[in-house]
Design a protein around this nucleic acid. Structure first.
Lengths: 312, 312
DNA sequence: GTTGAGCATAAGTTTGGCTTAGCCTGCGGG
DNA sequence: CCCGCAGGCTAAGCCAAACTTATGCTCAAC
């Protein structure tokens, strides 16, 4: 008799379902890619577990009992439902790509381009998360990430986009006031904005090893885009990437305050779990992103070429 | 990505279903009577197989993703359907007892009593099959059988009902004409009806070893009840069981043509698969049958006591 | 700060389920 | 009529999936 607490073996149910649907153990075995012996065994097992005879065995064929018919109807239905919902879930999942990236890159570089992706792949919605610290891709909250670092993350595939480089940028009106920027001992009339560690690196790349920067930087790391906005507004000289802020440079809202470009040896990487490298939405985004990166890297190649790397 | 041909592992689906329904891997593990590690493993596996993240892992809890919610709804539903239909099938099965027996016993002895069983257990429908040869109980076509034999059938439990005995029976009007029945050399005015092998045994039990019976018995084995009907109609002397035809004897429609009773050493047995001895419908029928047998055996005890057994 | 709940991961072990091999039965064609 | 074949059953042995054990980690509660 049926023990109401315990569920019968699922393999047995599957075997029964196929046998009932196809009306033959042999055909079921073929569909399940196994042997008739296995199907026979499982059907018998199921019958023992629920205490009900499901098939009548005749010499060359099997026939469902009345109870068998009932169970078959429901089981076939249940399996079809499951099959369908996995496919549906996969489709739904394919239609939403969730991406986490650094606020600066997201705000200044990525967001303006996303419209083009949407036009090219209208079936995919991008779900963008901007957070300063690297989110764990293995948690599944995000499909892909754009990260800054050295490109080695266990379990993740990392595709290099462009190097992390920076140079002093200012509004054209401040260009003259910034003339002495290359000498850290001179006191400028305009404040320096942006990440102090980058300023240090930039000066070190110029040959000044123990620069003491004026205080009042007043910014968080990773909020450079706010400082860039301030620089555009003429409030000082910011340090930032000529690649990320190519648009500001090309439109003349910013100009280099000095031509020297430094880098920290790190890069921006497009990353995703190796296990998901064949996911079609990831492939689509990756391909699109690569072409965008290609164009930008090309446009910024002079900056990249002359960047002086400073190891930490 | 989901391979549309192959179904994901069912154990994984079950683990996921329980986890989704209970909102916790630990609770799911408890319900499935396994460990949290197993549930965790299976959910991860399912996600890999269908290529869709179903749960978001947080430190102390898990949360369904959007796709997870969809799959969960369907899976919970599918499992509930399955669970329900097995129970329903068991119930349906419990409500119908199918019994195969010999035509004589079924017609003359069992059928008149079945009304009482129906009254006592209105929830069980008896599905009666009368066939001269023993049906295979292991095929599942029948739940129980009443058989004639020596009580040893592999895999079957056999409960003895009463011995297979027989004596000459005739209509009261023929009693005088049957006076010389005990001497096979005398030619009677009335024909002998019924199984010739039983007549032979009966005479052998009386001490006549090589009896030559008159021809024209014109009956099949196992169709004694037809001959008994003929005897009731006064067409001859039949040989049959005083237990099975107790009713005819008690109402006076038949009388013993001679008081000698023979047996063949066999009995009628109530049998069913050992594996099913706890099936409640079988227990109910068995208990009812036993009480009926008890009463009949009691009423027929004088016939049974004096039956002379003749080994084949 | 300590404890406990909840999930993940690794490694070792068991057992369910598969395969192989052989048998039986009935059908159909030579 | 007989033999081959199709379809199902059973037994025995093997293997990988799935389970257990053990440990670690994180957060929440006291």
């Amino acid at each position: 008799m049926l023990n109401h607490r315990r569920f019968p073996s699922l393999s047995s149910i599957r075997a029964f379902e196929a046998a009932a649907r196809l009306g033959s153990f042999a055909k079921a075995a073929e569909e399940l890619d196994t042997t008739a012996a296995s199907v026979s065994y499982h059907v018998r097992r199921l019958e023992e577990q629920i205490g009900v005879r499901l098939f009548l065995r005749h010499a060359q064929r099997v026939e469902l009992t009345e109870s068998g018919e009932l169970v078959a109807r429901e089981a076939i239905n249940a399996f079809a439902t499951l099959r369908a919902c996995f496919i549906k879930a996969a489709d739904m999942d394919e239609g939403r790509l969730s991406l986490t990236t650094l606020p600066t890159l997201g705000t200044s570089w990525l967001t303006p381009k996303l419209g083009k992706f949407r036009t090219k792949h209208p079936e995919i919605v991008i779900d963008l998360d901007l957070s300063p610290d690297a989110q764990d891709l293995s948690s599944g909250r995000f499909d892909v990430a754009i990260r800054n670092g050295h490109g080695r993350w266990p379990g993740l595939r990392a595709i290099e986009m462009f190097p992390s480089i920076f140079m002093p940028l200012c509004a054209p009106a401040l260009k003259d006031a910034a003339a002495g920027i290359a000498d850290p001992r001179r006191q400028l009339d305009v404040p320096l904005l942006g990440r102090s560690d980058w300023w240090m690196r930039w000066y070190r790349a110029l040959g000044f090893s123990d620069v003491v920067l004026p205080g009042s930087f007043g910014t968080h790391l990773s909020a450079e885009y706010l400082d860039i906005a301030a620089a555009v507004a003429g409030h000082g000289i910011a340090i930032g990437s000529p690649i990320l802020f190519r648009n500001e440079l090309e439109t003349g809202r910013l100009v280099p305050a000095h031509d020297f470009v430094a880098g920290d040896g790190r890069s921006f990487w497009f990353t995703f779990p190796i296990a998901r490298q064949n996911s079609s939405k990831i492939v689509k985004f990756r391909d699109w992103l690569s072409s965008e990166v290609e164009r930008d890297r090309d446009a910024a190649r002079s900056f990249i070429r002359r960047a002086a790397m400073v190891e930490s």
